[in-house]
Design a protein around this nucleic acid. Structure first.
Lengths: 239, 239
DNA sequence: CCAAAAGTGTTTTAATTACACCCATGA
DNA sequence: TCATGGGTGTAATTAAAACACTTTTGG
């Protein structure tokens, strides 16, 4: 016990042992007309090759952990302007079958209907799956997904994060469907509209999206600047 | 880039390099008559010996990271029945001056007025400091404290964790003062009482605490069972 | 008897809920 | 012209906010 107590005194001994390995795994959500989805990958290396998995990588010695996540995400999504947030670090001794690997999970939201739908999945076998029907994944990856889903729900309630899953220009029916999908519930559309518009965070664009109806639905974009401003003033978004 | 892509292909190379070290640091909050406080420690090992710091330890190879946190906390607090939650993992390359150390921060709430006020601080030089006047700590520990404080505020709003900072038996004025301290604001005591009592989560004990007034204040305890029950039914605590 | 802290009610205002029909348009 | 999805208003209920005095009791 006393040998463990203090960092300094045990470092040498610690380094001589087989080290704890450090990895990053990414939970990637997307949303389209069919609903909320998760991006999963077929592992093509041992152990557990051929099974479905989240995408991850080891953390390099000279790499910020945040950069590991961005590296992994950039490689598949091609881009950049996506929402990424650290989720939780998973570190049970038994979580990986072989080595001791501690994994820092990051969750990410990508705008599926954007041009970046063209995922750079060469070299990977990847697929989007309905978030309600995620297959068995390797190790504790299903648990990671569950934690990410809770976090998404928690965050979406108090932060305007839904917009990260929609194209830059979106319609109220899209946003409405997104919230219904996230919370797996039905909402009253009149009340939803009133509440979201009251926040003053949507800019009406004066354009219409006619892809889903003859009449067309008003397009909006999220006013990030105003949100920044309001947040500074102590405003709390809540839906 | 391609060499980094897949865990399997790089593992051997990865292990030959100097490893990334993994540590746990704990942010410990307490609350007493004087207000909300943070427990800090004087480092008695190099580097940075003599400076104020959070308490931490390296993660042992055969130890769950959660257990590392509990080990650290148990050693100082003597006990057990304390609130501990993972906060965030800090992993900038430059965060530690010497080795590459990634640190998983845990935050904790302890019931100061309990008998466990008798912290087992032999061997440590420790002190409670006002959370508004935290001195310069080593490395990125001040940032950790700030993140923990945000988390405390976020959590206290939507989960009944205030109780984790109070003795098992507490009075409404105590709880009221705690919330005022956490949010650094003044609240209306009538509205606060009504709201907290309406939740039905406080059990009136029929005893009075006369330590702060002649009249004495009604003692309550938090009804954990009822909270469990309500939570299952979809109840959301909010203060 | 009085200082000091504990405790209590009401009114006003704002938000939430529940609910059903008209609008615009392309095929 | 009609089927389809987009859009709108109001009343009832409930929660939030604002506000000041009375109670208890040990010293």
């Amino acid at each position: 016990m006393t040998t463990k107590r203090v960092k300094g005194t045990i470092k040498k001994a610690y380094q001589d042992k087989e080290p704890v390995l450090l990895a990053v795994d990414c939970i990637i959500f997307g949303f389209d007309i069919e609903g909320l989805k998760l991006l999963i990958f077929k592992r093509h290396y041992q152990p557990l090759a051929g099974e479905w998995s989240l995408l991850g990588s080891f953390v390099e010695r000279d790499e910020n952990i945040k950069d590991t996540a961005h590296r992994v995400l950039k490689e598949v999504t091609g881009f950049n302007k996506i929402f990424v947030e650290q989720l939780h670090t998973f570190g049970s001794v038994a979580r990986d079958s072989g080595d001791r690997v501690v994994s820092i999970a990051y969750w990410s939201l990508i705008k599926l209907n954007e041009q970046n739908t063209h995922l750079n999945v060469e070299g990977y076998e990847a697929k989007w799956v309905d978030f309600k029907k995620v297959p068995k994944l390797v190790l504790d990856h299903n648990e990671m997904v569950n934690v990410a889903l809770s976090r998404l729900r928690e965050r979406a309630r108090i932060r305007p994060i839904g917009f990260e899953l929609l194209p830059d220009k979106f319609t109220l029916p899209q946003l409405f469907n997104l919230y219904q999908a996230i919370y797996q519930t039905t909402l009253d559309d009149r009340n939803f509209r009133r509440k979201i518009l009251r926040s003053g965070l949507l800019l009406e664009l004066g354009e219409k999206d006619k892809s889903t109806s003859k009449r067309g639905a008003q397009l909006y974009k999220f006013d990030y600047d105003r949100y920044e401003q309001l947040t500074k003033e102590g405003y709390l978004f809540e839906i």
